[in-house]
């Protein structure tokens, strides 16, 4: 069970949706570009989508060098917010920092794409000027990261369309407990369990929170795939 990210293997539809999301994020966050990297549990880089080809090359740099805010955000499971690629950044990422600096980037903000222990990748915001994201921009970046997570989870099955199975409010403990239960029930990775839970909600035309509540209460049992 050590390949957490197996549940999210985005198809071409997901990649183009991620590119749109990155372009949208670039405008909202006054960024030079935004990129998304999909990663396996061991940190091996799978696929990148970005707002534009130049940003995609910058996004790839951390995998060329095997270091950078994105790599650290994935490993530490928390954002890594670098407001100034200065001397301190040089010490932390000696190969990566000069390379992005060369590309004109002065600030990098990396947000892990994850739901608890299900880790899917990282979203990176690049800016050509040093300085922090405002609180409003931080909130937006986190909202955009959450959208990237659902895109990755739903992306492999186009049949889901755009129907919204998520509640507007925080679904909280029952949903997360149900994720852990489905993982054991189906003998799959946690990320795959998230995908299967969502797929069940789509196909039965119900809200995710209702499906989760039924699973936690023992009223619903998902079946293993024998294919």
């Amino acid at each position: 069970m050590d390949h957490e990210a197996n549940g999210a293997r985005p198809g071409r539809g997901a990649v183009s949706r991620l590119q749109v999301l990155c372009a949208d994020a670039t405008r909202k966050l006054s960024a030079a570009g935004v990129g998304v990297s999909v990663m396996a549990a061991d940190g091996v880089h799978g696929m990148a989508a970005a707002s534009d080809p130049a940003t995609e090359r910058i996004e790839e740099l951390q995998f060329t060098f095997g270091e950078g805010p994105c790599v650290d955000a994935f490993a530490s499971r928390r954002p890594v917010l670098i407001t100034d690629l200065d001397h301190e950044a040089m010490l932390r990422w000696p190969a990566y920092t000069p390379a992005v600096h060369e590309a004109g980037i002065r600030a990098v903000f990396a947000f892990p794409l994850q739901v608890g222990a299900a880790r899917l990748g990282v979203l990176d915001v690049f800016r050509t000027h040093a300085g922090p994201l405002s609180r409003d921009e931080l909130g937006q970046a986190i909202t955009i990261s959450e959208r990237a997570v659902t895109t990755l989870l739903d992306g492999q099955d186009q049949a889901h369309g755009e129907r919204d199975i998520d509640d507007a409010i925080d679904q909280g403990a029952p949903l997360w407990q149900a994720q852990g239960m489905v993982m054991v029930m189906l003998g799959v990775t946690l990320a795959e369990a998230l995908v299967r839970l969502r797929a069940h909600a789509y196909t039965t035309d119900r809200h995710l929170s209702e499906v989760a509540a039924d699973i936690v209460a023992g009223r619903l049992h998902l079946k293993r795939d024998h294919s």
Binding site: W176, M181, V182
Partner: peptide, 15 residues
Amino acid sequence: NSRIVIEQAKGAIAQ
């Protein structure tokens, strides 16, 4: 996120 992990673990052990 750590809180989410704890809830997921509770579900896994309960199941």
